Structure formats: structure tokens, C-alpha cells
Computed example of a mutant assay.
Amino acid sequence: MAAVFTLWHGGASAQMNHQHASEAACEETVLRCASKVMPAFSADGTLWLVWMAGGQISVASSKDEGKTYSSPVQVTRESLNLDWGPDARPKIAIDGKGRIALAFSIFRDKAFNGQVLTTQSTDGGKSFAPLRPITADNESQRFEAIAFAPDGTVFAAWFDKRNRVPARQNGKPYDGAGLFFATSKDGGSTYSDAQIVADNTCECCRLGLALDGSGRPVIVFRNIFEGGVRDHAVVTFSGPASP
């Protein structure tokens, strides 16, 4: 895979709004400048890559297991303050019909409050719809994970701090974040109202998401157990919306 990162020396230059000095090798949008890359295979064996570089999100595909790649498609239309945390990275999922769902997070302020943005492609990755927030709530969201169920539903999970403000208003401490989820019936264009799986989970580690043999989500996350002990936990679902 090392050869992949030598591709595409051209491309438009874009300045990132905020960048760790150790993260990016350069400030262009091309793959060799990427600080985060995520792969996924589609049902036909195509290898897809989504990456963040130069404050932008881009996508390309390979029909020969990574030997050569298509011309990259820039998903975003303006330079964004992308979440550069070590456990943050853009996510990509492809269904059996070739629809592509993407999700990634940005920083909205210097306090590292995030927002998860989503988009989709219905033409095989040639173009992507305008970005949408995954939820209307204005509190911080980070560390999203997405997957296509066999019936074409997109399942998404993320960490969300919406319960922080009411807890503090009631004079109660609030640790960590809530683990929330939502589903999309239109390939990732719009998502249902967010629902909570568990509150007061660890807010600084990425999620692991997979589907079981019945197409139901399974999430691995870092929880805050009694006594402040932080350790991995697993939640399964009895249905698409029933953790």
C-alpha cells in the first residue's frame, strides 16, 4: 500500500483552518498529503479510499486492488476545520447497488466541540450531494461510524454531548458523552432522529461498528463503568432501532 501514497502529485492547494504540525505532510488535497485515510471494498471488489487533506475530503477507487486508482473526486466544496484527532477519520460505506455514504467530523470551535457531516453519491462516486449535519442538535458530536444494512438502510453511531448542558443546569456532574445512533432510508441523504444507546461513555476513542449475520448493528466502544473505570464494552441490537 506504500505505493498508493506516491500518487497524484498535482491538485489544488488549500489551507487548513487548524492543523496539528505533525499531522499533514503538505497542504494540498492530493492523497500524498493525507493525514487520515479509510478504505472500504464494495460488493464488486472495488477498493474505495476516502481521505482528508488540505482541509478537504476526497474519494477515489481502484479496480485492481490498489495498483492504480481513478482520478480523485473532491467531496467538499470549501476548506473545513476537519477533526484532526488521532482517532478521527472520514468514514465510507458502499451498498450492493453502488450507492456511497460518507460521514466525517469537523471542529466548530477551539474547545474541540465537533459536528458530524454526511453526504452521499448515487452515481458511483462521480459526484456527492451537499453536506448535511447528521443531527440538528448543536452540541458536540465526534467519532462517527456508518454501515449499510442488507436492506439498504444506513446505520450511523457517534458520540454526542447533548446531555451535558441539562445535567449542568441541574447541578449534576457530567462525564464523557452519550453514544447515539440514527438510521437513513435514503442512502445517507437524511437520517432519523437521534436515539441514545448509553450515556456517560468515554468521549475520546473511536467506535467499532459491524453488522451481524442478521444485518443488525454491533458496536464496540470505550465505556465509563462504575468507579470511573474505563474499559471496552459491546452493545448489540435486537432490531435496527432496538439496542
Rank of each mutant, 00 (worst) to 15 (best):
S42H: 03
G176F: 08
G10S: 10
T68S: 15
G228V: 02
R99D: 05
N17D: 03
G188H: 07
R222S: 01
K67H: 06
I146C: 04
G215W: 06
S61W: 00
V165W: 00
G152D: 07
N200L: 08
R230C: 11
G11F: 00
I57S: 09
A3P: 04
R168Q: 08
L7H: 06
V165H: 01
R89I: 12
D109V: 12
T183V: 15
P90L: 10
A241Q: 08
T122V: 15
V116E: 05
K67S: 04
C33W: 03
A129S: 14
I94D: 05
D175W: 10
S140P: 04
V30M: 08
G228L: 07
D193N: 01
I57P: 09
L117I: 08
H18L: 05
T6I: 00
S238K: 13
M16R: 08
E28W: 03
T118A: 15
R216E: 06
K63V: 09
Q169N: 10
A21R: 12
R230L: 13
G11K: 00
L82A: 13
S58C: 13
F143I: 13
F159W: 06
E27G: 12
L80G: 03
F107A: 01
T122W: 11
N163V: 10
K36R: 15
A241Y: 04
G239Q: 04
D123C: 14
F112S: 12
A147Y: 11
A60S: 15
F128R: 04
A157L: 01
L117Q: 06
G178L: 00
F155C: 02
M52I: 10
D64H: 01
T118D: 14
G11I: 00
M52C: 15
A147H: 10
K97I: 03
T236Q: 09
I134E: 05
A101Y: 09
L7A: 08
A241V: 06
A198N: 07
V59H: 10
E139D: 11
R206K: 07
D212R: 04
D137H: 06
N163M: 12
G11V: 01
E144C: 15
L80D: 07
C33D: 01
A101S: 10
L179H: 00
A60K: 12
A40R: 13
G66D: 04
T29K: 11
S71G: 10
A194L: 00
H9D: 14
A88H: 14
I92D: 08
L82T: 11
Q169F: 13
Q120I: 01
D186C: 05
T46D: 00
Q169Y: 09
L31G: 03
Q19W: 02
A3S: 15
D83F: 12
A241C: 08
T76F: 07
N200D: 03
S105L: 11
S22V: 08
W48G: 00
K126A: 14
F112H: 12
R132C: 11
R99E: 10
A40W: 09
A14C: 02
D109W: 14
V234C: 09
A198H: 15
K67E: 11
A147G: 14
D231M: 04
D95I: 12
C26L: 08
Q74N: 14
D160H: 07
R222M: 00
